[in-house]
Design a protein around this nucleic acid. Structure first.
Lengths: 1357, 341
DNA sequence: GTATTCTCTACCGACAATATCACTAACTATGGG
DNA sequence: GGGATAGTTAGTGATATAAGTAATAGAGAATAG
């Protein structure tokens, strides 16, 4: 049958029409009259005004939930302590807390340009392209909205200028500043940072050419201070420690107390033994500044320093003062390696512990040099490991006393701090070194070895690529020098024009590093994106670009860090700690400052330039057969090739990797290509203190994984700056602080299996070639040819997915190997709903069963009285028996003790009982422990490292039941105490069975056939996904998959599935009726919100006066204060030209209408997930407080066996706390408040009075305007009215009150629902009008008392 | 006895189908059949069997039958309303109406092999089959793929082309006709026009919009001298213009699979000269072809400029390439499913 | 005012079509007064 | 030197691409009328 056209043709054309719809393009050039407020994207799009005016109140700032205790729905809205922070502030602005939609449209347009300029400015300054930088400044100056923040950009420039021209005399510098600010940038005033730069410059100039002017000049600058001297001094990114030392100890123009607290201890220790004379003198003058200057960071540091002992003067006496300021380090890398002090001390500390002679021997031999011992990444043969590295975990475990353990950990931590730094900063160099090493070794053995050894080959590529990159950089540099102004593009060919775009960025990073990164990225991307032997070009260029940017960022942090602290030589570990701490605070602030991200198109361009160079140089030796002579032919071919593939008529750019290389990659250990910056950490992650500071030390990450949505960032930043989400940080920091180590026993088993190359559990086997069926003759029937093609495709896809699967396992394994015996941490951040994920990809506890099996807690805890029981239960759970009574689960394990023993002692050669588990690797890990326990006389003394899980039974439904107060639902998901756990899936299966039986009796054929085939498994997935709003069609597929083994015919199986799905849906709806009411309410609310219009939307943005673009996304606040913004909007993608091809990437700055459908479908699951995330974070924080090691996989909470009881209490209490108030009601109130003055388009009966009045207004208006009115006009007038009503002037308000608009008419209407016509009602006489947005009434709450779950042992089990 | 031809009044009552259009004006049909001069090929129309795919309302079918009175005239129409319409109009006529799906390959094997309702004669490839003619209307917007598949069937000598060189009279959107008939070095030159060149001798017979002619090669137009009619002569009158082409299979002798790969990949960068574009055929392609192409002026051409002869030449070189890529693996897997219960 | 046409298709982590041509606005260069 | 005009180019929008619609089909929303 001919298919309708829309599927293929119209679909694409529509997509295209949308992406190029006039909106997107017009935004680049905002109309000159659009004068929005200043809202750059890094500025709070959310009410800056409200956060400053409204006192922190409500749930966000209160540390307990007492304010939540209002269980009475009717009362709570009038309660003065409202649950959301913004309620108090709504009197200023007519809608104070949401500037993101409408204003964004006018302001974001320019934001985009500014962002691009910024990023270019930063790049130019780093590359010392001062002229071009200055011209960018001039452009930025012209953006009116940007004026307020312009001084920051100027400071950036001035600082670079000073750095570039250290010998620019003090007076001349002053002249320049004056000139710039008085003539070039008239409207701009300096700030304290400007002064800091001037002071720094003066000091430096003085150091090389001593000047009489120094002291008076500096004093003058201090006097010019805008916000006080402390403010100037807080610019640690400008003023170095030696600057401060000069100021405090030599020139004595300032006192110690004026310094930022993070560096005070250092300066104190640097001071001459007689305390500074002028301490008191200045203190008075700066006292009033102290209060306002206390930034959060300082507070934080104070806390951490408070517990630290200040170093005695004794130990610091020989620290040289940073007297000479010398030339700036051009090459920051050199500075990195210096940091090896104190390692002897560590060794001494360690040797002082009770160790076996072997351990002592090991430690004496071990070089405590972070640079040489980053991780065990050397591709040595198995078994060699012990020679070069230490198993810290074993030593730690063998230490007898707690005291010694503490000492050991402390020493290890000091060592690891350095290693972490190296790991994050020097990893590319490490890779390069390894390649070189292997190359030289191979070379000694002859040419063939080089070809055989992957690393040697990479070294060759690297060497060939490097000159190309250098040449390109030179091109870029000379081009930039020739053409300082970016707009001056004449006489340039295409290549050069492009070069002008990416040049400033490309020159930022060491060419060698870029080569390494490019090579590593491409190897990593092998077999991704559905490409058989290669990857998608688009993905490749962006990944490389991103990796380069990431490298740049961490280099930046490192550079400024070493500049500020460069004169501080560390002698004692105590002092070192001091510096380490000051540095970490410093890093936080630095990372935070680097606000500018490279534009996506730049990333793509850079990536493509590098990749095309690699393609050019990377060669492999290949063998082939000459088709004519049949002779074997050898030759050299490019390792990578750029080409295209089609999919459904769409082109797809691909980078193919040569078969030869692929084969080699499959046999290699891939550790060399893991992105080193994102490995697990060796030390505790930097705690989260604000939205973009936390996690890795040098690598920037943000708290939330935003989907390129400025809106999300804006709300997050506002909340973060407001201090509203500190409790989120608390929970997240607990997760990050849990130390882990690799389970050596499990690792050994995995490793054995892996090396055999056979398929085992979910590890696919290592296949060399795929076997394809013989092609049918060409003139066979088309259907036969097609079937064969399909077959080939399926086989190839299976092959390819197996390979990428194996590759993934390879990564996991190699990371695990690298961390054998190490103490490791997983820094976490959140997805946009607030769920926590580890930042490090590949290998973490959220991974598959194998990853989880490979991880155990670093800390061991004695099993104690209940630990053994939980360990046994855990094993039973892992075998899938998680719906038995606890005692039955214990019994299960006890009945299999022999199997446990066999599994632990002969995991591969024995009966392999463990492989029959649901989660075999974790089961194996547990068997290992249980087997050890059984050897003990007193099991309670056994020290356990195994995480034991407690999982919520259908956690989503648990939250729904609590929300709806639904007794029946609550019972089903174990919120109600019961002597045995309820099994939802089994129960649904029974219900379906019952329905089928009834239907069968009525003679339903389908029911007769299906009725005995309903198992728990058939319905499980559908019940689970039902919470996520699975559709009828989707569920049918799921069920069909389960049913397919029963029916031979696929078509038949699908037909039955369709039938069955109806019953399953019916059964679920019946069982969780209340949950569905809430789901429906959430969906309906989301729909209405995303179809609503903000009044202050620029009425000009109505293209068609009656059809506005809907811009409001659904936004809410979690109980922890985290603002959630659903990011679902229409996509707008653009083609961006790169060296290789154009790539199609989304434009992150475009402001697009919301995708109402996704908003609606997403709210129910997202809201629930935001709640389970809150529950988890609350539990994490509390567990952390109680000293537990805690980890989680969303709704599965992990801790030591001995602590399970404690954790169980905590998580129940937190759940109760969470649900003590009516969260649905709270959500509705928040919506009502947030979307207060929004309107929607609806229909009312034309015959009503109201409709008549509206018609009259329209008529009058139409006469006045001389044209027919539109809804846009009505919005305009209503907006005017609202403005008047909110005016400061009484007269205005009076005018506003008298004003009648089509919207104001509805103010007197109480029952909007009665008035409004439903869609498609049989009334033909409805007329479209603007109605105030009203949300549906929330469904009634049942009687379930959430506190009863205190007693439910199967709530989580 | 002649078969009644449905008039515009009758057919305009039917709703339309995704851009499916047809000429209804009998006078234009007269011109078209004059132009086609089918008796040149079918010397003895009484022996002719005609397979009419998507006959629509059957205007053309009726006119054809009245003109030539073939031995068998079978219409295959799946769409219910049209099928009913045909049934009602041609109830007692010798025209055969079958409610089958022309899109489905199995329709033909049933018709020919199993049910033996329509059994054409196999004829040797030295001439156009003179007892079997296919007529089709594939003017629907989404059905271009079907035409392309039929074309590739000519290359495979399967489907209806196992009966020899079977002529086809094919209605299609004029944009499709333009693509198919594009000559080298023209904007519209694309892979499918190379395919057309490789497997068929195709002529434009009629077109519904004079404006459309500017998209075609003027020299060819002179030769074809197509019948031009107006939008008013077709139904529905609005919508994109349509064209009728006459498609005769020709002899060819080259490695179709490799040729397919080479043309497909080269035509992606159809504006890039062969001196740089060959790398997109596989690892080291440029180097290899540089060494093999003797006529260096060929390297200056763009894929767009190449005749099929030249593509065949490149294909020959390609098949002789020791390191040529696996042409079977030329696809991506977009739908890896993850997550199971 | 209804009927046809189009668009999805369970949430999150997650990760993406591209080449070419026509057209236009904006800018550059030119040659003549 | 100024203004007009031809020529150039950057940027955007439109369209074609492959060729059994991936396994699938019915509901609900958007749009045309």
């Amino acid at each position: 049958m001919l298919r309708p056209a829309y599927k293929s043709l119209v679909k694409t054309s529509l997509l295209q029409r949308r992406l190029i719809s006039s909106k997107g393009s017009k935004l680049y050039k905002p109309s000159p009259d659009s004068t929005g407020t200043i809202l750059m994207s890094e500025e709070p799009l959310v009410a800056a005004s409200s956060s400053t005016t409204s006192p922190p109140s409500g749930i966000i700032d209160t540390n307990d939930f007492s304010l939540f205790n209002n269980n009475n729905r009717k009362n709570s809205s009038s309660n003065s302590s409202t649950p959301y922070q913004w309620k108090n502030s709504s009197d200023l602005d007519f809608d104070p807390f949401n500037k993101s939609h409408a204003s964004a449209i006018t302001t974001m347009t320019r934001t985009r340009d500014v962002m691009q300029l910024w990023s270019l400015l930063e790049a130019c300054l780093q590359s010392n392209l001062m002229k071009r930088a200055f011209s960018i400044l001039e452009s930025l100056y012209l953006v009116p909205e940007h004026k307020q923040r312009f001084i920051e950009d100027y400071n950036m420039y001035l600082n670079a200028f000073s750095r570039n021209e250290p010998n620019f005399p003090i007076l001349k510098m002053n002249e320049k500043l004056t000139n710039d600010l008085e003539t070039n940038f008239k409207d701009i005033n300096y700030n304290d940072k400007t002064l800091a730069i001037m002071i720094h410059h003066s000091l430096r100039f003085h150091a090389s050419a001593s000047s009489m002017l120094l002291k008076p000049t500096i004093s003058a600058y201090f006097k010019m201070s805008v916000n006080g001297i402390r403010e100037i001094l807080s610019n640690l990114d400008i003023l170095t420690i030696s600057d401060l030392n000069l100021l405090v100890n030599d020139l004595r123009v300032i006192s110690l107390s004026q310094l930022p607290s993070s560096v005070k201890p250092i300066l104190e220790s640097l001071a001459p033994s007689s305390s500074p004379v002028n301490n008191n003198q200045n203190e008075d003058g700066s006292k009033n500044l102290e209060a306002e200057n206390n930034s959060k960071n300082e507070k934080n540091l104070d806390a951490s320093l408070g517990s630290m002992k200040t170093p005695s003067l004794e130990s610091l006496r020989d620290v040289p003062l940073g007297g000479s300021t010398g030339v700036l380090p051009k090459d920051a890398e050199k500075l990195i390696a210096v940091d090896t002090i104190g390692m002897r001390v560590i060794r001494h500390t360690l040797l002082g512990l009770s160790l076996t002679p072997e351990q002592k021997e090991q430690i004496s031999r071990f070089k405590f040099d972070a640079n040489e011992n980053v991780l065990n990444m050397k591709p040595t043969k198995d078994g060699d490991d012990s020679d070069t590295s230490i198993n810290f975990f074993e030593i730690y475990n063998s230490l007898p006393s707690l005291k010694e353990k503490k000492a050991f950990e402390s020493a290890l931590n000091t060592f690891n701090q350095d290693r972490q730094k190296v790991l994050e900063n020097r990893a590319t160099e490490a890779a390069r070194e390894r390649w070189k090493h292997d190359f030289e070794e191979a070379k000694a053995r002859g040419d063939i070895s080089i070809e055989k050894n992957l690393n040697a080959k990479l070294w060759k590529w690297y060497n060939n690529m490097l000159p190309l990159v250098q040449e390109e950089i030179n091109h870029c540099k000379s081009l930039s020098l020739e053409r300082p102004s970016p707009s001056d593009k004449k006489h340039l060919n295409k290549v050069e024009t492009n070069r002008l775009d990416y040049g400033p960025y490309l020159t930022l990073i060491d060419p060698g590093k870029m080569c390494v990164i490019t090579i590593l990225e491409l190897l990593k991307l092998n077999s991704t994106g559905g490409v058989i032997e290669g990857m998608r070009t688009a993905r490749a260029v962006i990944s490389v670009g991103k990796a380069i940017e990431m490298e740049f960022r961490s280099e930046q942090v490192l550079k400024s860090e070493s500049q500020t602290f460069r004169d501080v030589n560390k002698k004692s570990p105590e002092f070192k700690k001091l510096v380490q701490n000051a540095k970490s605070v410093f890093r936080s602030s630095q990372i935070e400052q680097s606000k500018i991200l490279w534009p996506q198109n730049i990333r793509a361009k850079i990536g493509s330039v590098l990749i095309s160079m690699l393609i050019h140089v990377a060669k492999v030796f290949v063998q082939g057969v000459d088709p004519i002579t049949k002779a074997k032919v050898h030759g050299e071919a490019p390792a990578f090739a750029h080409g295209y593939q089609y999919h459904n008529g769409s082109k797809l750019g691909v980078l193919k990797i040569h078969k030869t290389l692929i084969r080699q990659l499959n046999g290699e250990r891939l550790i060399a290509s893991v992105q080193p910056q994102l490995l697990p950490m060796l030390v505790e992650p930097k705690p989260w203190v604000n939205w973009r500071s936390g996690g890795y030390h040098y690598t920037q990450s943000t708290l939330l994984r935003t989907k390129d949505s400025p809106e999300q960032v804006a709300y997050l930043k506002a909340a973060s700056d407001n201090g509203d989400i500190d409790r989120v940080y608390d929970g997240l920091n607990v997760l990050g602080d849990t130390p882990w180590t690799v389970n050596r026993k499990v690792f050994d088993v995995v490793s054995q299996v892996w090396n055999r190359g056979e398929s085992f559990l979910d590890i696919p086997s290592a296949q060399e070639e795929m076997v394809l069926p013989l092609a049918p003759p060409r003139n066979s029937d088309p259907s036969i040819l097609r079937a064969w093609k399909l077959q080939v495709k399926t086989i190839a896809n299976k092959f390819s997915s197996d390979r990428s699967n194996r590759c993934d396992t390879n990564y996991k394994l190699e990371i695990a190997r690298a961390f054998l015996g190490e103490k490791l941490y997983f820094p976490h951040n959140l997805d946009f709903r607030g769920r926590a994920y580890p930042l490090s990809p590949h290998f973490n506890h959220l991974g598959n069963d194998m990853s989880r099996g490979l991880l155990i807690f670093w800390h061991g805890k004695k099993l104690g009285p209940s630990g053994l029981k939980w360990l046994k239960i855990h094993l039973s759970n892992l075998f899938g028996f998680d719906k038995l009574r606890l005692e039955d689960r214990v019994a299960f394990t006890e009945s299999h003790l022999n199997d446990v023993k066999d599994s632990a002692e002969n995991p591969l050669s024995g009966e392999r009982w463990w492989t029959t588990a649901d989660k075999p690797w974790q089961a194996l890990a547990t068997c290992f422990e249980l087997n050890e326990v059984m050897k003990m006389d007193n099991p309670e003394e056994f020290i356990s490292h195994q995480p034991v899980h407690q999982d919520g039974t259908c956690n989503g439904l648990q939250h729904y039941a609590a929300l709806g107060g639904d007794v029946e639902g609550a019972t089903q998901v174990n919120l109600v105490p019961n002597d045995k756990p309820q099994d939802v899936y089994a129960h649904v299966a029974r219900l379906v069975q019952k329905r089928l039986e009834i239907a069968a009796e009525k003679g339903d054929e389908n029911a007769k056939i299906l009725k005995d085939k309903i198992t728990r498994k058939v319905v499980k997935q559908t019940v689970m996904t039902n919470v996520y709003g699975v559709t009828y069609v989707g569920a049918t597929f799921q069920i069909a998959k389960q049913l397919s083994p029963i029916f031979d015919d696929r078509k038949e199986s699908l037909d039955y599935s369709k039938y069955l799905t109806k019953h399953v849906f019916g059964a679920i709806r019946e069982l969780f009726h209340s949950a569905h009411l809430i789901q429906d309410w959430l969906g309906e609310s989301a729909k209405r919100i995303s179809k609503s219009i903000r009044l202050d939307v620029d009425e000009k943005s109505f293209k068609n006066g009656n059809k506005p673009d809907f811009m409001s996304s659904v936004i809410w606040t979690t109980p922890l204060g985290l603002p959630i913004v659903q990011p679902y909007r229409e996509e707008s993608k653009k083609q961006v030209e790169t060296n290789l091809q154009t790539v199609f990437i989304s434009d992150p700055f475009a402001v697009n209408p919301v995708n109402a459908r996704r908003q609606k479908a997403g709210l129910p699951p997202n809201f629930i997930h935001s709640l389970d995330a809150s529950h988890m974070l609350l539990s994490a924080a509390e567990c952390g407080k109680q000293g537990l090691d805690f980890a989680s996989v969303h709704d599965s909470y992990w801790t030591h066996a001995s602590d399970v009881d404690t954790m169980n209490v905590v998580l129940r209490e937190q759940f109760i706390k969470l649900h003590e108030i009516d969260l649905v009601l709270r959500l509705k109130e928040e919506f009502d408040q947030r979307y207060k003055n929004y309107v929607k388009i609806g229909k009312i009966k034309r015959s009503t009075d109201l409709a008549q009045k509206i018609v009259k207004i329209r008529k009058d208006l139409s006469k006045k305007l001389g044209r027919s009115t539109t809804l846009a006009d009505e919005i305009y007038f209503e907006k005017k009215r609202q403005e008047l009503l909110n005016s400061q002037l009484v007269e205005d308000r009076k005018v506003g009150e008298k004003m009648v608009t089509t919207v104001s008419l509805f103010e007197d209407v109480n029952d909007l629902d009665a008035l409004e016509l439903e869609n498609g009602g049989d009334e033909h006489s409805g007329s479209s009008v603007l109605l105030p947005l009203r949300l549906p009434e929330i469904p009634p709450k049942g009687d379930f008392d959430v506190t009863v779950l205190r007693g439910s042992q199967y709530f989580f089990s | 006895m002649s078969i009644p031809i449905p008039g515009i009044k009758d057919i305009s009552k039917l709703k339309f189908f995704y851009g499916f259009k047809y000429l209804w004006n009998p006078t234009v049909y007269d011109k078209i059949f004059d132009k086609l001069d089918l008796t040149r090929t079918y010397k003895n129309p009484k022996e002719l069997k005609v397979l009419d795919l998507y006959p629509g309302v059957g205007v053309q079918s009726a006119i054809f039958y009245n003109k030539y009175s073939p031995k068998q005239y079978s219409m295959i129409e799946k769409r219910s309303s049209l099928y009913k319409f045909l049934k009602a109009n041609l109830e007692d006529s010798p025209l055969q109406i079958l409610k089958k799906d022309p899109y489905d390959w199995s329709t033909y094997s049933n018709l020919i092999n199993e049910e033996r309702i329509f059994v054409p004669e196999v004829q040797p490839p030295d001439h156009i089959n003179d007892t079997f003619l296919t007529v089709a209307n594939v003017t629907g917007e989404g059905s271009e793929g079907l035409i392309m598949q039929w074309l590739s069937c000519i290359g495979n000598k399967n489907w209806l082309y196992r009966f020899g060189k079977v002529k086809m009279l094919l209605w299609m959107p004029s944009t499709t006709a333009r693509k198919l008939l594009a000559r080298p070095s023209t904007h519209s030159r694309s892979k499918c026009s190379v395919v057309r060149e490789g497997f068929t001798d195709t002529k434009l017979v009629a077109i519904s919009d004079a404006d459309e002619l500017k998209g075609f090669d003027s020299q060819c137009l002179e030769e074809w001298d197509p019948v031009i009619f107006s939008a008013a002569d077709m139904w529905p009158t609005k919508g994109k213009p349509i064209a009728l082409v006459e498609m005769d299979p020709i002899d060819f002798d080259f490695d179709v699979e490799n040729w397919d790969y080479v043309t497909r990949h080269l035509m992606i960068l159809k504006g890039t000269p062969l001196s740089t574009v060959m790398d997109s055929l596989g690892h080291g392609g440029q180097q290899y072809f540089n060494s093999r192409i003797t006529d260096k002026s060929l390297l200056k051409k763009r894929p767009l400029d190449l005749t099929n002869e030249e593509f065949i030449y490149l294909t020959k070189l390609f098949t002789e390439w020791p390191f040529k890529p696996d042409i079977l693996m030329d696809f991506v897997d977009m739908y890896q499913t993850e997550h199971s219960g």
